[in-house]
Design a binder for these strands. Structure first.
Length: 970
RNA sequence: GCCCCCGUAGCCCAACCGGCAGAGGCAGCCCACUUAAAAUGGGUUCAGUGCGGGUUCGAAUCCCGCCGGGGGCACCA
């Protein structure tokens, strides 16, 4: 049987041919090459350079081997549409895509398949490249790279050496003079130590220190340093992890393995030095509020005071003080006891050998003396994991330490407790407990019969048996020479801090939740550190001219992993097995000549490569610098105007113009990257203060899952839908199945791939469908059977230009009738605004509308369909190029100027005016668009239908919004 | 427990600064083409905006309180 499909119909097959042909042509012509003002690719004469510039970027993918589904390219298509649109405005547009190819996912896939990570990673990247090409991405291929390329990670290592060889000078003026604090080369700190301008913390003389001692001093300042501290050890992954990679319930973000605290010597990055700038600069960014909030919460800056509670008697004689941090210094009058963390060192000094006279029996754990009780409590606490401690959060437990401190304001003696609801890692590890204004302290006070004093007047409806944490006037807060009574919280805080500072009992203090970034991993597949260790145990950076330090071949690249529950295991770096690589003779050029060193065997986390890749996109062929300064300034330097919604007085921080990616990187990649960028800024390598000026989180495409009566998923593509009186039902192979909504995944049997869609409909149809499903940020369900609507649109557009039977172009060169002309200009105007604002879904709706209008004409005028082809080009670029060519153009339309709307044709001369009586529509009038209010009011009141509605009632008021509306109030 | 986002037709989504609830698509129904079906084309039905209050001449839109869905944080002193 012969198919009765017209020979020249725009079918998936024809689309496939057209698409492949145009992809070849774009590639051979370098259509998407953008122009650089300087550096190896300088093209200073390119006219686009002076015509505006935009950098559009996607979060680059991991070539993990799991395979793409239709959700993955959503953001890529959106940025491609935007970039293609911008090119038609004459702008110089940079849009490319590389690969985040180091790291766990790539390594795990390699381990699973028993191959070297480089082999599988490169194979997967090839698949990705082919798929991206097939989707018609206008990426600039020559700017693409992978983080595993030695030419790339050479610079990742170089940045590490810069960070390592820097320190944060909190008192130096900011680089732009607009604040205090910046990173400086470590050599300047050494000079200060040598000259004596700055004292060494423990008071020794620099000249008298050994190399190892000097190194130890400098490690206290370097922005990258080795520290022995409790870290997150994940036996299941065989590596340590940063705080950001551990979930709230104490498991690894990747793989969901248990994580344990182990004391280990690891590389850290001093991100905490930038905490303030990382918080403050958020308001200069055009980012989703949600992401800003997540970063603010993660950094967790809180303002308060440290207050010393003392004297506490020491067992060995004399007294000591206990410092607490509080955000509520205004409530000190209500501090009736203290609690220190079980790990607090002061406990070693103050716990006496006998319970004080009259100790409440509930305070003692039933132990005969405080030492036994505190020791037992500390042991029990140390056995609890963070997870268990959190799980027990409801019950406040603790034990009396047997000692008393003095409330520095009231002079009252107050008991000191040990309690695990106080964390050693936050503030000072000790708190003043104010049960009246703190729920946790209230719980503790109730459990241990401790006094409660309210120092803020609760609201009248506040329950008697609860802490009051709200705002109100201070009460019970007076002593001789100080009264907070009647003051609001903010004012009371200020007054209190001033009082404390005047007496030396406390001082203003800011604390942060953010901790330094644990930067080393015990994995093979990552960047080696550009660090060698000498025989004294002193670290040295590898000189720039010896970079990159290439990743060696090892007999076994898989990490040593352990039983996920084996908390006692220790990490082993796979690189340590490359003994010939580890032992190395080098002349570091420091005057010490050829010496033997041991290479650092940890590798960097995969965040390292993604921390700065946007900078390399700018100038990927540059061998002399990570990016030419002029190129950086041109593409992502600060713009004259601040971003939308920035507070008054804010300046633009620079950065990538548009960055699109998933929200899952809110506090990982996006925080690390901002940190590195600010270091590079301080050191003068970049002119921008932020990496990403504008961020959009694309939504996910989800899918329906169908399950049979056993609960097993059945292939979603084979499910039939039945509309019935009792609602819609679903069957698979004749048996009833249930529908639920969720993620797309192999095990759920609902995966749809871009390749399938290209096969069945063509890439352009797929692009149009994904873009018309809804706003970019929105989560939405995939529905394959709806894709045909997008295909029909493109087929109708095709048919408006080409005869399906003969393949001939059928457009006519006639003048547009008034209606078509108006529709065209309205569409151009709307589509331009929509594409500009990334509202591609509504842009497509407007194009469909115009196309449907053209379909109804006897013959399609060229003057109408050519602009439509241009407008559709960003979304369906292959089809548009093909039609453009068939319409007689020889050049690609990638740079053809976007159609302009004539403002004169956008105004209607006659509009429909709605006449309401008491807000209800009673009549419609056709009136001139420029009708004046008085005339319109007269016309409305004269309407018989309006008069009938008014029914003789007196008119109280008439609201006129010429020319659209009149509302008569009776 | 606290914070953020979202609820419009059977489904996905529009609706600009508060001003006629509907741009577009899917599905359904009718018609044309076809021996027939598919494909294609043309036409058409469908909601008063999750619920309850309030502000306003006028509310999908602003405010308050619920309900439902999604997400973030959670002894942070």
């Amino acid at each position: 049987m012969s198919e009765r499909i017209p020979q020249h119909r725009y079918t998936a097959e024809l689309a496939g041919q057209i698409e492949a042909a145009w992809q070849d042509r774009w590639e051979s012509e370098g259509t998407f090459h953008s122009a650089n003002p300087a550096g190896p690719w300088a093209e200073p004469d390119d006219p686009r350079l002076t015509n505006g510039h935009t950098m559009v970027m996607d979060m680059f993918p991991y070539p993990s081997g799991a395979g793409l589904h239709v959700g993955h390219p959503l953001g890529f298509i959106a940025t491609d549409v935007y970039a293609r649109y911008l090119r038609t405005t004459g702008a110089n547009v940079l849009h490319t895509m590389g690969f985040d190819a180091f790291g766990l996912p790539a390594e795990q896939y390699a381990v699973q398949t028993g191959q070297h990570p480089r082999v599988t990673t490169e194979a997967n990247m090839e698949i990705y490249r082919r798929q991206l090409r097939r989707l018609g991405m206008g990426h600039e291929r020559r700017r693409s790279f992978a983080t595993i390329d030695p030419d790339y990670y050479r610079w990742t290592q170089w940045i590490f050496t810069q960070i390592y060889n820097s320190w944060y000078d909190v008192s130096a003026p900011a680089r732009l003079g607009d604040g205090i604090g910046r990173a400086r080369p470590i050599s300047e700190l050494v000079a200060q130590f040598e000259s004596g301008e700055r004292a060494i913390p423990d008071g020794r003389a620099w000249a008298g220190l050994s190399p190892a001692e000097r190194a130890a001093v400098l490690d206290g300042y370097r922005l990258a340093y080795v520290s022995a501290a409790p870290v997150n050890w994940c036996p299941g992954l065989g590596t340590v992890l940063s705080n950001e990679e551990v979930t709230a319930d104490g498991r690894s973000e990747r793989g969901n393995f248990p994580v344990f605290k182990r004391n280990l010597s690891q590389w850290m990055m001093r991100i905490t030095a930038y905490a303030d700038r990382l918080v403050d600069d958020l308001e200069r960014l055009d980012w989703p509020e949600k992401v800003k909030l997540m970063q603010r919460n993660w950094i967790g800056r809180s303002h308060g005071a440290t207050v010393t509670f003392g004297p506490v008697e020491r067992v060995e004689g004399g007294t000591t003080g206990i410092d607490v941090f509080t955000t509520r210094p205004d409530t000190i009058f209500g501090a009736t006891f203290m609690v220190v963390a079980p790990e607090h060192p002061v406990l070693d000094e103050i716990v006496p050998s006998a319970w004080p006279e009259g100790t409440d029996p509930t305070w003692t754990l039933g132990e005969p003396d405080p030492r036994t009780a505190v020791a037992a409590y500390r042991t029990a606490a140390s056995r609890k994991s963070d997870v268990e401690r959190q799980a027990d959060a409801k019950d406040k437990t603790g034990v009396f330490a047997g000692a008393f401190a003095t409330n520095p304001v009231t002079g009252t003696k107050i008991p000191v407790f040990v309690g695990d609801y106080v964390l050693m890692g936050y503030g000072t590890g000790a708190i003043m407990a104010v049960p009246g204004q703190d729920e946790r302290d209230w719980d503790f006070a109730t459990a241990y019969h401790l006094p409660i004093i309210r120092t803020v007047q609760p609201t009248p409806d506040h329950p008697e048996d609860k802490a009051f944490t709200g705002e109100g006037p201070a009460i019970n807060s007076s002593i001789e020479g100080l009264s907070l009574d009647g003051l609001g919280v903010a004012e009371a805080k200020e007054r209190m801090i001033e009082w404390l500072e005047a007496r030396g009992a406390g001082s203003r203090r800011i604390t942060y939740r953010l901790r330094d970034w644990l930067f080393s991993r015990q994995r093979y597949w990552g960047e080696p550190f550009p660090i060698v260790w000498d025989e004294d145990g002193v670290a040295h950076t590898v000189p720039d001219d010896m970079l990159p330090v290439e990743l060696p071949e090892v007999p076994d690249y898989s990490p040593r992993t352990f039983d996920p529950e084996d908390a006692g295991s220790s990490p082993e770096a796979p690189l340590a097995r490359a003994t010939e690589w580890v032992e190395v003779e080098l002349d570091l050029g420091d005057g010490r000549g050829l010496r033997t060193y041991r290479r650092e065997t940890n590798t960097m986390p995969n965040w390292a490569g993604s921390c700065w890749y946007y900078l390399r996109y700018l100038d990927p062929a540059n061998d002399d610098a990570l990016v030419d300064p002029a190129v950086e300034r041109y593409w992502i330097g600060p713009r004259p105007a601040p971003v939308a919604d920035a507070p008054a007085g804010a300046t633009d921080p620079g950065g990538v113009d548009l960055y699109v990616g998933g929200v899952e990187h809110a506090v990982l990649h996006l925080l690390y990257s901002r940190f590195w960028h600010k270091v590079l800024f301080d050191l003068g390598y970049v002119s921008s203060e932020e990496p990403f000026r504008r961020l959009i989180n694309q939504g996910m495409i989800e899918a329906y899952v169908y399950r049979d009566d056993r609960g097993f998923p059945v292939p979603a593509a084979e499910v039939e839908e039945h509309a019935g009186p009792g609602g819609t039902t679903y069957t698979w192979n004749g048996q009833a199945v249930t529908q639920e909504y969720g993620k797309m995944g192999k095990s759920l049997k609902n995966v749809v791939t871009p390749d399938e869609m290209c096969e069945q409909y063509g890439a352009d149809t797929f692009r149009v469908y994904e873009m018309s499903m809804g706003p970019l940020e929105q989560y939405r369900p995939w529905e394959t059977r709806a894709v045909v609507g997008s295909q029909r649109f493109l087929q109708r557009l095709w048919r408006n230009v080409v005869d399906e039977e003969t393949g001939e172009v059928t457009v006519v060169d006639v003048e547009l009738d008034a209606e078509t002309d108006k529709a065209l200009h309205r569409t151009v105007d709307g589509v331009r605004a929509d594409l500009e604002a990334l509202r591609t879904n509504t842009a497509i709706a407007k194009m469909i509308e115009l196309n449907n209008h053209l379909t109804k004409l006897d013959a399609v005028p060229r003057a109408a369909v050519e602009p439509l082809v241009q407008m559709v080009a960003p979304v369906a670029p292959h089809l548009a190029e093909e039609l453009w060519q068939r319409l007689g153009h020889t050049e690609s339309l990638a740079y053809a100027p976007f159609p302009e709307a004539d403002p004169a044709k956008l105004v209607e001369d006659v509009v429909t005016c709605v006449v309401q009586v008491k807000g209800k529509v009673r009549d419609r009038l056709e009136v001139p668009a420029d009708v004046d209010e008085a005339t319109l009011e007269g016309l409305a009141l004269a309407s018989p239908r309006v008069q009938a509605s008014i029914d003789g009632a007196p008119v109280r008021k008439v609201i006129v919004r010429a020319p659209n509306l009149v509302n008569i109030v009776v």
